[in-house]
Every structure is written in structure tokens, then in C-alpha cells.
Design a binder for these strands. Structure first.
Lengths: 289, 289
DNA sequence: TATTGTATTTCATCATGACAGAATACAATC
DNA sequence: GATTGTATTCTGTCATGATGAAATACAATA
């Protein structure tokens, strides 16, 4: 009981979500069986999640009767994406390599030694870096970083690719955008514009940016469009996490996003699509200056 | 020495490739060191590959002097893609599931038992099926097949996606197509049209088709376009391997490909791009009849 | 009877060691 | 001196068993 599992944490969040969606009031009784059924897991991890919520004072066990809701939980910050355990290692290794503190060619054992990771973890991390085309297996043993010719060309190709997919995604017949999503995005962008700007906000800014583009890709109703953009975001995450945006760039970006949201709210998708095209073209030139 | 490694097989093929590229004649001496350097591996696997070639009567060892080329090897069939070891299992599992002989939800151990695979192999295979969105991890333990709603919608979304990417790829400024590739493709398509058609040719036909689209994607000079189409091919490979094409469909397909090749040979890319668009639109309707 | 409490079984991950193949170094031969 | 032959070291994969968590079955209680 000291450390809730990742599954248990996720379930706890999803239970909070269910409570909100169902509009339950204080005093309502939950029960493990129906939760387990709705969440498609067994009772065991649900118990763990409930215990976790109990420690937070959100529910209280009523022996043999159920679990009473004793406080309405408020959802955490707007859809904080659950940070993957391996992810921090991805970022760290990518950064270390860029800083030149890693050799161009490296074996799995060397990575294990340097970072104190076990082998399965190293293999997961390297596989994911390979998916992002940041490393590749060497023919014999070991791995090789690909960041030689990569950065310059990749940046352009990424934008060229997104220019093919994102504006068209908005025009798909299956495009459906949740109005509440638009509202949430508007609020996030408004906040970013008004809040005082720190260098340290660049990660948050990146994530908002990524969420905007991914959300529209998801709305296209085409899983391949969505998957492609998610992949692009993942790719950019590492090369841009410690990229220092000037505030002017942030302002321009938010304004362009807000403009698109305005048109999308009125279902003016042709215009939004054009704006997306121009937005990407402009953004692609930022770095190459 | 009974079984050459996969790496050794690959090296043997690449050595043959080098011999052809360099235009070496019978009697020429190869040496392990320079081959190892050019192939970016150590001498050990090169030795294995040479031994393999020796058994085929292509080279002969001259102790302490080198390895003599005693027969000009002819390249195997046009770019036969080295069939991945796991791949047959992917196909088999996908097929078994479609045939209904696998449960909707399944654990890794169950897969190990049914197919007599070891755990790492099962994990590789399931991961790849997950990349193709054919299965997903269940929250707790086990995996779930996604082929419920999948097939119908996926087919359409796949073509919608390719319609965004493939015609545009041809128009990219970085587009470069190797004339010899065009020639090879023409020959392949011509052969397919003339040869008598068997049901059993459908795999070969699929692969030619895939190679055509992948080749054009690669020519775009954009790695994301290329990766996206490779992914689409992989996806289609499983749902279409035992799809029975009527011969009329094969004829139409080849004619359309050949027409595109004609325009591409003259660098008439706008027209080729339009033809690609119509080709995909037409192909997308075949199955939904 | 509905629900939680408890015990048992099953599963996936990790740790460890064995093994085959690749990398490397050095000896032998022309 | 260049090349192959041979030995040694290093690396990654597989096999096995231990461990913790999830799934499942059954008992207990309101």
C-alpha cells in the first residue's frame, strides 16, 4: 500500500472522471464490482485505486455496504498527460547526445551502465528512439545515433509532411469537433497570452501547441491522420523541449490558433484549412532563420 | 557452419551487390578486411558470409592471399524483400484470428502455448501487431484484438489518408526517381500482364503493388512520406494476402501503374500526380462493392 | 442478495546465468 | 606488408526461476 501502481493511479483518475460524468453527489455509494466492470479490469486493481482515493479523503469504505463518496474531487489541471515512466529517459538521452556527452555508437550495456537502467528498460527506450528515427541498430551489435544529417533536413520534411496532412484532415467529411474542446483550447490559449512569460513555460507551451494540432487531427475521424500527427508531435517533443521560444513567437502562434478556433466554431472549415496551411508554412520558417 | 546467421545472409547478398556494382570479373581477389570496412561490420560475420558464398561455388578461398571470385553471381529475383523471421507469425496470427480460431482477448502465455513461441518472440510479434493497430494491451493483463469495427472503416480511412500523401509526394521539390527503377517496374508489370494468372500469384501481385507505391514514396525525398506509405503497405499486407483478386482488377491496376510510369519517365509529374489520385480513388471502391 | 473480505491462481516483469555470435587482438603464412 | 588463421573478449538473446500484481473463486457479513 505504500506505492500505488500505475494502473491503480490511472483507475483512480478514471473513477474521478466517472463520478463527475455521472454527476454523483456526496454520500453516493460506489461499489467495486460495477466499477471493475465499467473499467474493464478485475476488482483487485480497483480496490487499490479506491484505497488510494480513501487516503486522499475522497471516499470512505463502508464495510460490506460499499464505498461512500465523501468529497467531490476536482479534476486535476486540464488533461495533464500521464507522463510515461520511460519518457524522461528518452528526453535525457536525446539531450545528452546533443550535448556531445554520448558517443555516436553505443551498446546496450554501455547505456545500462551510464544510466543505471536494467536491460528491458534500455531496450524499450532504444526501441522508442528508433521509432523516432533518432537511433538505429547497427548491423552487428550496438546502436548508432542518426543526428548527423538529421536535424536540418528533418525539420523541413516534417513541415512538408504536415502540410499534406493537417489542412486536408480538417476538410474530411468525417470531421467532428467537440465544442467543449474548442472552449477549453480557447481558454488555454488566452491564459498563455495573458500570463507573464517565463523561459520555463516553454514545455507547457509546446504541450499546448501539440494538443491543439493533435486534437484537430483526432477530430478528422481518420485514425491514420491522428496517428501521423501524434508521431510528429512525439518527434518534435525532443528537439524542441529546450528550444527557447521568444515571446513574440508565442503570441503569433496563439493568435493564429485562436483565429482557426473562431472559424472552426462556426464550422467554416475551408477557411480554417487555409489558415492551417499558412500557419504551418509560417512556422516552418521560424527555425531556419 | 550448418546455418548461416541472418546477418551473414544479408552480408552475402550485399557482397554480391558490391561485386556487381564494382564490375569485378572472374578471378578478382576480394579480401575480408576491406569488405568488413565497407559493410561496417567486423571480419567475423564477413567470414561467415564468404563461407556461405564458397558453398554456393561463387568464391574460393586462397589461403593467406584472399578470396577469389570464381563465378559471377546473378542477383536473385528483383529485390526480393528479406522476409523477416517474425513476419510469418504476424500473418499466421492475423489469419487465425480472422478465421475465428483465436479468442478476442488473449494473454501472452496463451500465444506462447498455441504457437510454441518463446516469450521475447511473442512480445515482438504482439508489439508489431499493436503498431498496426490490430491488437491493443488490455489495462491489466493480456491483449485484445481490435478487428471488431476495424475492417470496414479502416479500409476507407487508409485510402483517404493515402490520397492526402501519395499524390502530393510526387509533386515535392525533392522528388527524384531513378530511371533504372522505372525500367524495372515496367518490366515487372509487363510480366504480370503477360504471364498466365494463378490464384497463387496474389501474394506476388500484392508485393509488386506495394513496391510501386513505396518506391514512389521513397522518391519523394521525404522520409515521413516514405515511412507513412511503408506503414500502410504493412497494414494492407495482412488484410490482403489472402484476398482473391480477379484478373480484371490486376489488369486495370497494372495499366494504371504503367501509365503513371510513362509520365514519370518524361518527368510529367503533375499528370502523374493526378493519375495517382484517380488510381487511389478507383482502387478504394473495389472492395466496398 | 448484494457487497466487501480473503485466498488462490494466473500472469507479466525482472534478475540471473548460459550460450552463440560479433568485435577485437594477435599469430601465422604467403 | 598484406592477408588469412586463431584465440580472446564483448555483446545480445534465450531459458529459467523469483516476485509482485491482476484475475478469479469463494467465504463472510450486512
Amino acid at each position: 500500500m505504500p506505492q500505488p501502481t500505475r494502473l491503480q493511479q490511472d483507475l483512480a483518475e478514471r473513477i474521478v472522471q466517472l463520478v463527475n460524468d455521472d454527476g454523483l453527489a456526496i454520500g453516493a455509494l460506489l461499489n467495486e464490482n460495477s466499477l471493475a466492470r465499467r473499467l474493464e479490469v478485475s476488482r483487485t486493481p480497483v480496490r487499490g485505486a479506491l484505497q488510494h482515493l480513501e487516503e486522499q479523503g475522497i471516499v470512505a469504505r463502508r464495510p460490506n455496504r460499499g464505498v461512500e463518496l465523501i468529497a467531490i474531487p476536482q479534476k486535476n489541471l486540464a488533461s495533464a498527460p500521464p507522463p510515461d515512466d520511460d519518457e524522461e529517459w528518452l528526453v535525457r538521452i536525446a539531450r545528452d547526445h546533443r550535448a556531445g556527452s554520448l558517443p555516436q555508437d553505443i551498446s546496450e550495456i554501455e547505456v545500462m551502465r551510464r544510466y543505471g537502467l536494467n536491460r528491458p528498460a534500455v531496450q524499450r527506450v532504444l526501441s522508442r528512439l528508433a521509432d523516432l528515427e533518432m537511433v538505429e541498430r547497427k548491423p552487428g551489435y550496438g546502436w548508432r545515433f542518426l543526428t548527423g544529417t538529421r536535424d536540418r533536413a528533418t525539420h523541413d520534411e516534417s513541415y512538408r509532411f504536415r502540410l499534406m496532412v493537417e489542412p486536408m484532415g480538417i476538410l474530411e467529411a468525417s470531421f467532428r469537433l467537440d465544442p467543449s474542446w474548442i472552449e477549453m483550447m480557447r481558454r488555454l490559449h488566452g491564459d498563455t497570452l495573458e500570463r507573464h512569460w517565463h523561459e520555463s513555460s516553454s514545455v507547457a507551451f509546446f504541450e499546448m501547441n501539440a494538443a491543439f494540432h493533435e486534437g484537430l487531427a483526432a477530430a478528422s475521424g481518420n485514425r491514420f491522420v491522428h496517428a501521423a500527427i501524434r508521431h510528429q508531435n512525439q518527434l518534435r517533443r525532443f528537439s524542441q523541449y529546450d528550444w527557447k521560444f521568444g515571446f513574440e513567437r508565442v503570441v503569433v502562434n496563439c493568435r493564429e490558433h485562436l483565429e482557426m478556433l473562431d472559424y472552426l466554431a462556426r464550422d467554416e472549415r475551408e477557411i480554417a484549412s487555409l489558415l492551417m496551411r499558412r500557419h504551418l508554412e509560417r512556422a516552418s520558417q521560424v527555425r531556419s532563420e
